[in-house]
Simulated scan of single mutants.
Amino acid sequence: MARKGRDMSTPSRYEPGKPPVKLIVGGVVAVVLFFVVIAFVSSFYAVVDAGTRGVYKVFGDVADTPLEEGFHLKAPWADVENINVRQVVVEERVAAASFDLQQVQTTIAVNYYPEPGKVAQLYKKIGADNLDWERVLMRPRIAEITKAVTAKFSAENLIRQRAEAKLLITEQIKKELADSGLVVVEVSITNFDFDATFNQAIEAKQVAEQRAQQEENELKRKKIQAQQQIVEAEAKKQAQQFETDAQAYRTRISAEAEAERTKIQATAEAEAQKALAASITTTLLKWRFLEKWDGVMPKVMGGNGSILMQLGLDDDEKK
């Protein structure tokens, strides 16, 4: 029996250099199964990121209590959507009229964050994004309150009393949003923009006030200088008077001292003369004579006898 050869017209299921079809199909099936398993397993848990809260939904029904940050188990048919609860800022430019009917463009910046425990209610009523909250809750109230407060101030007082206007706007915005689920942290008035005519008037007034202030300062300076000159003149006058009084006092004291010295000296001299007069006796005079006498008798003698007899020495000796 003759052996039949292979029909060369039929392609072979395996060709050298190419992977088998079964191997390719098996690999694809394995990859698909892997992702199916991963998806199936991941459907049993949810991760709530930091700075967010998780809104738990089951077939569109939203749970009232949001999930905290971290890992949470859930039913495979449930869905968890992360809602940002970090602080954000919304800026609104509001056109309003002041008390004196000046047009004012006021730019308000409000820092706020959603209250973490109320994100589920916000999600139900408004939406999951802060843009939705700002569009529905924040911006209309900011505009309304800013217009109402601006109308209470004149254009000039809006500039002068900016802090008071900011306080009123802040209080009203916090009051309006108290039960909305949004917490207002801070309100800032970043800019007041007036029309060109008012800006020119304000600039002219500021220039006039600056000039008036300069003139007032110059007047005060001159007044102070005049007062200083008066004080200096008075001080100089007092110094001269003091010097005159001091000189007169020195002269009087010197005269009194000289008079006292003269008096004391005269008294001393008088006492000395008196003492001297009292101390001069005949015996003393004779004694002084004898101290000066050289013992030589005078060559010419009078009729009364010797000089000793004239001085009375003989009488003394006799006594």
Rank of each mutant, 00 (worst) to 15 (best):
R162I: 08
S43E: 07
E218S: 09
T65M: 01
I169A: 10
A165V: 02
K118W: 00
L285S: 09
R160D: 12
T170R: 00
R221S: 10
E260F: 11
V85G: 02
T107D: 08
E69C: 01
R135T: 14
E317T: 13
R162Q: 13
F44Q: 11
V80D: 03
R252I: 05
R252G: 05
K237Q: 14
T65S: 10
K318V: 04
K236L: 13
D195A: 06
F34G: 13
A278S: 13
K147E: 12
F40Y: 14
I24K: 09
V29P: 06
S9G: 03
Q241K: 05
V41M: 07
T10G: 11
N84Q: 10
E69K: 03
S306H: 09
G295F: 05
A2P: 15
K4F: 08
Q87F: 00
S42E: 12
K205R: 15
L290G: 11
I307F: 10
A239Y: 09
L311G: 03
L73N: 10
A278H: 05
M8C: 04
I307Y: 11
Q238F: 08
A148I: 00
G117N: 14
G70W: 01
E81R: 12
Q228K: 09
A235M: 14
V149G: 00
R53W: 02
M309G: 09
A208S: 02
Q229A: 09
M138V: 05
V21Q: 13
Y123R: 14
R135I: 03
S306G: 13
E81N: 11
A165R: 01
T197Y: 04
P76Q: 13
S43A: 14
R288W: 10
V89D: 04
F289C: 06
R160M: 02
S188M: 07
